Computed example of a mutant assay.
Amino acid sequence: MRKNNTYYLRKAHRYLGLAIGIQFLAWTISGLYFSWTNIDSVHGDDMHKPPHYLASSQQWVSPQVVLEQLAYDSLVSIQSVNLAGSPLYLIRYFSGHAGEGHHLHTYTTLADAQTGHLRGPLTKEEAVLLANDHIIASAQLDTVEYISEIGAHHEYRGGPLPAWILRYSEPNMNVYVSAESGRVEKVRNTSWRIFDFLWMLHIMDFETRDDINNYLLRGFSILGFITVGSGFMLFFATLHFKRKKR
């Protein structure tokens, strides 16, 4: 018996559906999770205390006092940091001359805003003090760890290093405090970890989990479009065949 075009169309649609079906399922499950999950909970915003502001009665020295102690080529930014009620200056600047094909290195330093004295990165005790000032009191702190490098799949990827990890058991979350900037940078909890895993499946970037323009995602998107298109073609082809048979 001679096989018509509908037979080949049906067979192509079947194998395309098999190839793309698992990824379609991953897109659907991840999409459901994204739409039904509170993004504030994913970011850990619900664990933050209301912000504390520096008192107007505090005496500040001019940032120029700090800048005169630095050997810099150009200034990136000067910001204030609240270290549990103590004001600090956070200064970012470029230093050193870049040769051809090289870039200037960005430096970050902290200074006491009341005395103008330069100071080193946050200590372990200061990191705990800062985190306790930002995280609600019901959180149970277990361990504190200093990190200077991380892998590509680490939950703190992209964050400034070095940093302090404060691990809490109740709830199950990690708070990351930048040692050089004196700030709580990121909060990572169970909701975020589920979100991050599903996001990886959703965009099909299994390396950095950030590249939404990778070729694997583009290829599967095209396959998905072809699969849906073949389904429509198969529907109209079989509909025409049934009418003709009648």
Results as ranks from 00 to 15, higher is better:
S57E: 12
Q58W: 03
Q58I: 14
Q59E: 07
Q59A: 09
W60M: 14
V61H: 03
S62Q: 07
P63W: 09
Q64W: 08
V65N: 12
V65Q: 15
V66N: 05
V66I: 14
E68I: 06
Q69T: 12
Q69S: 12
L70G: 08
A71G: 05
Y72Q: 09
Y72K: 13
D73L: 07
S74H: 11
L75I: 10
S77K: 06
I78S: 00
N82W: 05
A84Y: 01
A84D: 13
A84T: 02
G85W: 01
G85Y: 01
P87D: 02
P87F: 00
L88I: 05
L88P: 02
Y89F: 12
L90I: 00
R92E: 06
R92S: 02
F94K: 05
S95I: 00
H97T: 05
A98M: 07
G99P: 04
E100S: 14
E100G: 08
E100Q: 14
G101S: 12
H102Y: 08
H103T: 11
H103W: 09
L104W: 06
Y107I: 09
T108E: 14
T109R: 12
T109L: 09
L110Y: 12
A111K: 11
A111L: 13
A113V: 06
A113T: 05
H117F: 07
L118G: 04
L118A: 05
L118D: 03
L118P: 01
R119I: 07
L122D: 09
L122Y: 07
L122V: 06
L122I: 06
K124W: 03
K124V: 07
A127T: 02
V128P: 00
L129R: 13
L129E: 12
N132P: 01
D133Y: 10
I135R: 00
A137R: 08
A137E: 11
A137H: 07
A139H: 02
Q140K: 13
D142V: 14
T143F: 08
T143P: 06
T143H: 14
V144F: 02
E145F: 06
E145R: 14
Y146Q: 13
I147S: 06
E149L: 01
I150N: 10
A152S: 10
A152E: 14
H154L: 10
Y156W: 15
Y156P: 00
G158M: 13
G159L: 15
P160Q: 10
P160T: 08
P160C: 08
P162D: 04
P162R: 02
P162Q: 03
W164P: 08
W164L: 10
L166W: 06
R167S: 15
Y168V: 08
Y168M: 09
Y168D: 08
S169I: 11
E170Q: 15
E170K: 14
P171H: 10
N172V: 13
M173P: 12
M173F: 15
N174W: 13
N174D: 15
V175H: 07
Y176T: 11
S178T: 10
S178Q: 09
S178E: 08
A179L: 09
A179S: 15
G182A: 11
R183V: 10
R183K: 15
E185Y: 08
E185N: 11
T190S: 12
S191G: 02
R193P: 06
I194D: 02
I194Q: 02
F195A: 01
F195P: 01
D196F: 04
D196G: 04
